[in-house]
């Protein structure tokens, strides 16, 4: 289990400090999150600096906001990160010419989306992109799955369909505006059967744990 730097808002853009904060809690796994495109150059510079990152599993969350780069250029940049991290996560609704992403191969993980996004919620919506990118993996966001279907049936379907391509899991609860918040005891119970199927992959916390 490890932390996403996405919720460490005070230090946004200060990659060395963010990595240190994440490592204070776990060196087993971390996700360095550059959700907004202007954050990406700083993250790339940091990853190619001399800092040796201590994480056994490192994921990069690629940009879905303030996108300006042509997709081919973005993919070039992300492809260069393959020697620095195990996987890069992208939101399906932020991908337009899907064929551009094919060369990322198994380095790419597609995340299932919450209801604020236009697509990527269900098996049917994810199917075309996962079929077009047969080597891409799945980043399963369990809170997003609940937002789409609070019975968790859709989450079960997503794991049934692409569980063999699962790279890691995003764990948190969501508030009423779909912002990631600490995992609630109710959600912990609700998510348990799904998370029980994911014992071998890293769990990335997208909000500070309750006890923190």
């Amino acid at each position: 289990m490890g932390w996403s730097t996405g919720f460490l808002t005070e230090e946004r853009g200060q990659w060395r400090a963010l990595a240190r904060r994440a490592a204070e809690h776990s060196t087993l796994a971390a996700e360095l999150s550059a959700l907004s495109e202007p954050e990406l150059p700083g993250l790339v510079s940091y990853l190619f600096s001399d800092d040796a990152l201590p994480f056994l599993f490192l994921s990069i969350h690629g940009p879905s906001k303030k996108r300006e780069l042509p997709e081919a250029e973005l993919v070039d940049i992300l492809a260069d990160l393959q020697t620095k991290a195990e996987v890069v996560v992208l939101h399906p609704d932020a991908m337009h010419d899907v064929s551009q992403y094919r060369r990322l191969g198994t380095f790419l993980a597609i995340e299932n989306m919450d209801s604020r996004k236009g697509t990527g919620h269900t098996v049917e919506q994810l199917e075309p992109i996962m079929a077009a990118l047969p080597d891409a993996r799945l980043c399963f966001d369990v809170a997003h799955a609940k937002d789409i279907d609070s019975s968790m049936h859709e989450g079960v379907r997503i794991l049934d369909r692409w569980g063999d391509r699962l790279s890691h899991v995003h764990v948190s609860s969501l508030d009423s505006s779909c912002h990631h918040v600490s995992l609630t005891p109710e959600d912990e119970r609700l998510f348990a059967p799904l998370l029980d199927r994911c014992r071998d992959v890293p769990w990335i916390l997208e909000a500070a744990p309750r006890s923190f």
Partner: peptide, 21 residues
């Protein structure tokens, strides 16, 4: 700096994680 080697180390880690679980 080899993507192939990085892919193999990734596969090795997946193998580790599964076996450790």
């Amino acid at each position: 700096s080899s993507r192939l080697f990085q892919q193999i180390t990734g596969l090795g880690r997946q193998l580790d994680r599964g076996l450790l679980a």
